[in-house]
Design a protein around this nucleic acid. Structure first.
Lengths: 333, 333
DNA sequence: AAGTAATTTGAAAGCATATTCAAACTTTAA
DNA sequence: TTAAAGTTTGAATATGCTTTCAAATTACTT
């Protein structure tokens, strides 16, 4: 393997000049060309281990997800990886399996591996190790959920208005008894989506506490909640379920009850992945701009890495969009 | 940050002794204890950058997937990550987006980052950079598909027998006209699954070329193929689709044709993820033991890293299992 | 053409670790 | 008690890169 020493010799310049070339300092055109040629000829690759040892930077970004199999996280990381790798950052994946204790361990691991930045999916509460990252000025970006007890850049969906839009759309086409399968109050995402729903329902004067079900954002809880809700509220004409996995549970319950969508009940789901087009009828859903979100995360973290003194933490919101398919009926006709 | 120098001083031993301690050499019990205490007291963490510079090992494993959002890859990587991290290896993710050209680039990137091993999902053909990995004795494990033109450890599903079992089960309960939505002959997985189907159908004397459809393993192709097949072969009583995304397409087509499962047609899918329990009726599928597969990959790569001289490449097969639900009808009753 | 500004040089130090070696020290076995 | 075997020591060298510095060279201005 060629080193910068070899490159310097080949190009006929000094070692320091090559280093400055590699790190983007200005130098004479002639020298730049000679160095570029030498690098090509020798097939020189920077040794990131050596560089990192010196600079204390690893050129690696830790990405910590609640679950690798979570399609939401996976689809965001897909576009994030793209951008980061183009900027010569590698992406180290850690999966904390929705377990807060494991989260701290995984972060410690990443800390010991000198990551230059952290992307944290879906974390409600600060964990101790985050302070160490802050001390070392390693940027942290929170995704999907703001971290309570830790200030950092944050990328969120505008969950409140996503729900408002969903309710508004249903109301406009004649629905009044709109049920919600909610993730509950304890989580940020769940409570925001619920808040938007409540606000919109109240605004239209159709709010009724009995129409709210759920309490956890997983499939099984959603199944139970949907079963309960629909058994006891035969007047419900439309159901709004508030994330992908809850949609799965809700649909299972609707199937169990032998209700037909949209004849017996209209349905609007959240997140647009596999199931929305495979069940019959295809599902109308509230969709998140995951590719955009991934790119934004990348931009932020890159910007903060190059400018670690910037203590100005921002929260960026993205708008959801409704994708219309066949699970919602227009009651005005 | 404490260095091994600090640890040595604190423990009252020489620097070399600490290094030997950290690398698992034998030393006096008394010294081990003193060093352990010092490490704890100073909260010492090895610097992997420095260690890597010296040893030319990064303690990182590159994982190259066709798509991060591919639930099959994601669920395997979930258990792989667990095992590797416990052994102090980090996992660098690269997503080649089903693009062979990009694959070579991503591998080059990982090569330049000194990964100690590579896990390659779903690659049919060798790419040039693999030779460099071989030269440096960096182990490569192929998953899901053997790499033609490159010898390495390989972890596969026994696709042939998975199909044989599927057909056998259907035959036993009275099905004779069993259609298949196949990924086609060009890919390994697809052709193996097809081969098993053909062998079994012939064995039972019910083979008919007309019952075979498909040619690519993606959703849309499967949709088209299923539509064609079912339009022209009304006698088909059961359909076997041969991966998760093809199952999605096939179900969409069945819905489009307004056929009911299992009354009009029985259905057996492949891979057991979200959709199998969300559509009505729930799907009977051929399921892969993904957690086991992930662990096996980890074991192999760890073993090969510790013993790079071992040129004995093995192929390990896993058995699929049928998960019975409600999409298949017993015609004997 | 002279003066100023910009770039390059060569050498050296440093980053945290691993490994080597002969010499010194301990432990074990006879 | 002694010899043999096993550990540890301290110092040195190496890994590939960045950064520093005064001195030297080269490039622009007027």
């Amino acid at each position: 393997m060629a080193t910068i020493r070899d490159v310097a010799k080949e190009a006929g310049v000094s070692l320091g000049t090559v280093s400055r070339y590699l790190n983007g300092y200005t130098l004479k055109k002639a020298n730049m060309e000679k160095i570029a040629a030498a690098i090509k000829k020798l097939d020189f690759k920077q040794n990131y281990l050596a560089k990192g040892l010196k600079t204390k930077k690893s050129h690696a970004i830790g990405v910590v997800v609640n679950a690798l199999t979570d399609i939401f996280a996976a689809s965001i990381v897909t576009s994030l990886e793209d951008l980061l790798e183009k900027n010569n950052y590698e992406l180290i994946i850690a999966d904390y399996k929705n377990n807060i204790k494991l989260l701290n361990e995984k972060l410690k691991f990443l800390y010991s591996r000198n990551v230059d930045g952290i992307v944290l999916f879906h974390v409600e509460q600060a964990v101790p190790i985050l302070k160490e990252f802050r001390k070392k000025k390693i940027p942290v970006v929170a995704v999907d959920t703001p971290i309570s007890g830790f200030e950092c850049d944050t990328v969120l969906l505008d969950n409140y208005h996503a729900s408002v839009e969903a309710v508004k759309s249903l109301y406009k086409i004649g629905h009044r008894q709109i049920g919600i399968i909610s993730g509950g109050q304890q989580g940020y995402v769940g409570s925001e989506r619920l808040r938007g729903y409540v606000a919109a329902m109240k605004k239209y004067g159709v709010f009724d506490r009995e129409l709210i079900a759920g309490g956890s954002s997983f499939k099984d809880a959603s199944y139970d909640a949907t079963l309960d809700l629909l058994k006891n509220n035969h007047q419900i004409t439309a159901l709004y379920s508030t994330n992908y996995y809850m949609t799965i549970g809700a649909i299972q319950a609707i199937n169990k009850l032998n209700l037909r969508i949209p004849t017996d009940i209209s349905f609007i789901g959240f997140d647009d992945y596999d199931i929305s087009t495979v069940i019959k009828p295809q599902l109308t859903v509230v969709a998140q701009p995951v590719a955009k979100i991934g790119r934004e995360i990348g931009k932020i973290i890159l910007q903060k890495i190059t400018n670690p003194a910037d203590l100005n933490y921002q929260t960026k919101f993205f708008k959801a969009k409704i994708v219309w398919r066949d699970s919602v009926i227009n009651k005005n006709f």
